[in-house]
Simulated assay, not measured.
Amino acid sequence: MANTQGPNGYFIIGLDDKGNLHNSPPANDPAKIRGMLLKKVQEPMDVELYEHRIDDKIISVIEVPFSANKPHVIKEYIHKKSVTNMFIPIRKGTSVNAASKYDLDAMYFERGKYLSTLYSLTIGLQDLVKVLMVIKDGDSTKVLLEFHALVINRGINTDYISSGSLIIEECSDSSLVGQSFNLIGYKDNQSKSHLIEFSDFLVVNGNNTQRGILQFELDRETEDAAVIKSLDLHAKYRLEIENSIGNVYSSRSFSMETPL
């Protein structure tokens, strides 16, 4: 639907072909669906998930908003035991087909009307890799977090992350609330480490994506190793990143259970 011209599209779960309602509460929350899209779709589209109660039954509605960022590409499309890599679907009537050259021309024409942004970075933190503790001078500890991340550049110019922070909004240790982890570097696909302080930035070409492992360091030293335990799955964070021209992207609140 996201590749099709026209208004928003909807999937209604819980309504059969005869118009009968079936109790179908949402199986996943929106954050998990967005996480799946990040992994399976190149240029992932936005989706919204709602539930509606009708006649004491709950039906689920997945809304696919209009997207100017077409085409959205399924990395591995499986249909009737056949697998197609980098498949671009488009809905025509009640069927889904591979996009033709004319469909792609229309997508890029529409994209050109709406996407004139020169610089636009967003980022998805997909899962926590590990928590590290670095001992300094034998008595103080630096706490590091590493995340798998997908950086998306929706601008037409090459861009990079010049700085970033992971702000703690909720955790079991109230003294940590409001403090932040500063972005200190990243690891590329070859596990090579890069440090922000040496201007070794994570660069993303225009209208492209870049995967890596982002490394954040808690902006304070501590002598209490128990601080690690307070940064559990239920702790909540907000991510802020700054790009090459000083634009700041601020994420919604998230946790390790419901990543960006």
Rank of each mutant, 00 (worst) to 15 (best):
I184Q: 02
H194E: 11
Y186Q: 03
S174C: 00
F181V: 06
D173A: 14
Q190F: 10
S172V: 11
S175F: 00
D188T: 11
K192L: 07
N189L: 14
L183Y: 13
N189W: 04
S172H: 08
E197R: 13
N189P: 00
D188E: 01
S172G: 12
Q190E: 14
S172T: 15
C171Q: 14
I184R: 13
D173W: 01
S175E: 08
C171S: 15
L195D: 11
I184H: 05
K192G: 02
H194P: 09
D173G: 02
F198C: 04
S174W: 01
S180L: 03
E197C: 01
S180N: 09
V177W: 02
S174T: 12
V177K: 15
D173L: 06
S193D: 05
F198D: 15
L195F: 10
N189M: 11
G185Y: 01
N182C: 03
E197T: 09
L176R: 10
D200P: 03
S172A: 15
F198Q: 14
L176P: 09
S199W: 04
S193M: 05
S172C: 04
F198H: 11
D188F: 08
S191T: 11
H194M: 05
L195R: 11
H194A: 03
E197A: 08
K192R: 10
S175L: 04
G178T: 10
G178M: 13
N189R: 13
D188M: 06
L176H: 07
K192I: 06
E197D: 14
D173R: 14
C171P: 12
I196Y: 06
Y186H: 13
V177H: 01
N189S: 12
N182H: 03
L183D: 06
S193N: 06
S175I: 02
F181E: 05
S191E: 13
Q179P: 00
H194G: 07
Q190N: 13
S174I: 04
L183I: 05
Q179D: 04
I196T: 03
